[in-house]
Each structure stands twice: as C-alpha cells, then as structure tokens.
Design a protein around this nucleic acid. Sequence first.
DNA 1: AGCCTTTGACCAGCG
DNA 2: TCGCTGGTCAAAGGC
Length: 508
Amino acid sequence: MGGFNDHVTMAGDWMPPSPSTRSFFSSMLGDDVRSFSDLTSDNKGGTLFPPASENNMAGNAEEKNNGGAGADDDQSTNPGSSSEQRTNLRKGLSERMAARAGFSAPRLDTERIRPADLSQSSGMQSPYLTIPPGLSPTTLLDSPVFLSNTLVHPSPTTGKFPFSSGGNGRSSIFMMEGHDKRKDDFFDNINTSSFAFKPAAESSPSLFLGAGASSTLPRQSFPGMDISVQPGNSYMPQSVEPRKELSPPLNEQHDVDAEQRVSGDANVGNAPSEDGYNWRKYGQKQVKGSEYPRSYYKCTNQNCPVKKKVERSHEGHITEIIYKGAHNHPKPPPSRRSAVGSSNALNEMQLDIAEQGGPAADDDPALTTMKKGTSTGASYWRHDNFEVTSSAAMGPEYGNNSSTVQVQGGAQFDSGEQVDRSSTFSNDEDDERGTHGSVSIDYDGEEDESESKRRKVEAYATEVSGATRAIREPRVVVQTTSEVDILDDGYRWRKYGQKVVKGNPNPR
DNA sequence: AGCCTTTGACCAGCG
DNA sequence: TCGCTGGTCAAAGGC
C-alpha cells in the first residue's frame, strides 16, 4: 500500500517528529538503526542479525547470507502494492531478510539517532527480550509504565517498569502498522541495540530477561515476543505467552539465544497457557514461509471465541503468537496449567510488576494514554522481540466494556477482561511493506473485516514475522475487529491531533 | 473420566 | 477450475 513510502521517509524522519510515541520511537530507532546499520556494515555478507538468536537464526543463516540480493528486491518491492508485498513475502526468507536489512539501512540516519539510544541501550545487545516465564503479555500491557507514553522513559512516577517505558516506546514503535520491514529491522536492531528504556529497568529485573547482553537496560525490551491481536472478536488476548524466549532472568540475559532457548522458556514445551487462560490445542501445521510449525489453540472457556496461533522454534521458543478475538470471560484462577506458567519467572515478573508497577493499569493514566493509540486499525507494539499488533477494535459485542482491557499499546491484556480495542500506536509510519496493508485493512474497521482480509493480514504478519521471526522472536498479534469501538472503551479521550497518513484515506 | 495433544484429513479462500 | 495454503475437524492416544 501506499504506506511504504511513508515508511521510508519515516526512517529519515524518525528523529524529529512528534513528541509522543514517535519520539520515543525514534529514539529507539536510533538504537535499532544503529545496530542495524552496524550490523549490516560489519556483516555485510550476511549476518545482519545479531548473534544472539543464533538458535533461531541458525536456520536462517543461509538466508542471511543471501541477503544481499534480496535486499534489493525488497526495496523495490516494498513500495509496491500489497500484492507485491505478498509476492515478496513469498520470497525466501533470506531474500526478505536481506531486503529488509538493505532497506532500512540506507534510509536510516543511524548516526544521528544512535547516540541517544546507545547510551541507554548500550547494554542491550541481546536480540531478544525475554520475558520471564510466567510473565504474561497481559501483565506487560498492564504495567503502567508500559502504558504510559513514550515520554515516560523511566517513569519517574511509575517508574519502575522499564518495561513499560519500553512498552511505550516500543509501542509506539511497534505500533507501527507497517512494522514489517521496519519492524523487522527495527526489532532486529532493536533487539540488538535495544531500545532500552533506560531507567526503570532496574526496578523490575525480573521482567526483562532478555537478552541482552546487558542485563540492565535490556529489560525493557521484550525482544522476543510479538504480540498481535487480530480482530476477530475482539476480546483481546489477554496475554502473550512468554514462553521460552521470555524468560531468562536478567542475569541470564546475556546470552540471549542460548539461554532463552534452552532454559528460558520454561513454558516452552507447554501449551501456551502462560497468559492465564486455558487453551486447547486443536491443530498444528507447518505453514509455508514459516520455519516452524504453527499450533492452533482455542480458549477452553465455553463460548469464548478466542483463538491463538503460536509458532515455536524447535527449541520450543515461541517465535510468534497471534491472538484472535477477545476473551469474553475473566481469566480463570490460576490452576493447573496456568499454574505451570505461573511458576515461572513470568509469574514472578508479574508479581514484580504488580509490586513495582504498582498501580493498576486501569487506574493508571498512562494506560489511558496507551489506549489512545488505538485509534486506528492495527497497531503494533513491540518490545524488542516483543511485538504487539492490533487491528481494529473489537466489536462491541464482545468486549465491551472492558474497562481495562486494551490491547496493545495501551492495551492491557488483561486477562480477565476483554480487551476493548486495540490501540494503535501505530505506527503507521512504520510499516513497511505489507504491514500497511494489514493495518489498513483492519483499519477499515469493518466489522467483518472479511476474514480474507484478516487472513491476509495475519498472513502478512506471519510472513513477516516468519521471516524475521527466527531472528526476532516471538510475536504476538492481537487483532480486533473494528476501530470504531475503540473510542467507546469507557475512557475519556482528548484529541490532540489529526493527520492524514499515507495509505490511509481517513485522517488519523 | 476428563482434558489435552497429536496428526491426518477435510474445507474454504485466493490467485 | 485447479492448485496452493491456511485453518479446522475429529479420531486416537496419553496424562
């Protein structure tokens, strides 16, 4: 879609822009970019990506090497229409990856950007942000900081959550609809460089594991996960499952890859229940374009339409999680399986969060902020590897209320609650190629958003993620149904701007 | 006994 | 219309 160009520009623009998410974003980008560029230059031949993910990457290594050619393609293609994008998607991962690499590199003014982040993120090398096992996306989302805006960095107030800041920043970043390439690049880079939210990190050690070499900063990022919410019904997903990647405690973060895969994921082998909900796996399939098999889960709660797709690496690391629909019921009490997840670090993390973050997300204004993001269709939210995407808001039918729930950006994945809408932090800007498409699609908010569209979107996401996934890590996508509802989330919103975004006929 | 996972087959959408 | 692909179904088996 049209978005592509924008994105490109975006890259350049990152720095300047707007205060909010974007700025945050930009800062992040800086790191990302930097790292990315560095990588590219250094690695030229191939390894654009950070070593950390080797395990995941392993499969990709070849692809990476091939990258050069692919890059060109990508660039050329990116701009193209959605169809083109798809085409691209179909290309080998290697090409795509390469393309991405190539793509972003040139455009970004890494040098400018770099500094800021570096300082912050210097520590974060690890590509993945790990979320400790037990930590649910929900939790993450809930975290006040997270919600808070990008500005937050280390929130003085909320503070603690490095995560949050990351979240925010990321969210903004992530939100980028397009996120694709850029995302990928970003994320990849980010992971490596990290977008760190400096500050707070300390407080919640448990949260980030990540990767990063640097234990400190990294925490904030969530490298490995992408979360996306898809519209279907709307109840948002409550959580992302941390699984493998998630977890390594801060200390462990150093060796992201190894650790994450190996130990990190306590959850790994298990069904994704870490988010607090009970899921039943009803299928598994190898999806084209994806290195790893995709597992299909349904929420076991009666009448709950929520489904999720999880892709895991051989090691069991989650490379991508896509939520579809929102839960129409509260989170079941932790028991059994959930308990399992809870046992992990994630749980701890959550606890930490609660303690630290203290403020309930709901209450937290920041949260509110996040929600704002939602306006449009899809949003992406990402922490290093952690990414959340939401498309339009959920249908009122489902979630209604939910006071708390938000997806994405602001969203809380709170489990019990339904997510009302997605947020968009999007970034419209971001999107690189396809993403846009997806975004826009959701964006339309058509309730039905045809499945097909949805599919496409998903597919796109999948692919993108797939390509990068290995590299990047898990991703959670939450789709919602319509954007319209977004404003009806029970919160009060103040419009602070309107802008026409390329690729989107409607002013944002 | 209940719940969940596995896995091959089937179905539907899309190009 | 055909083939491909993703998503879902449902039987079988395990815990």
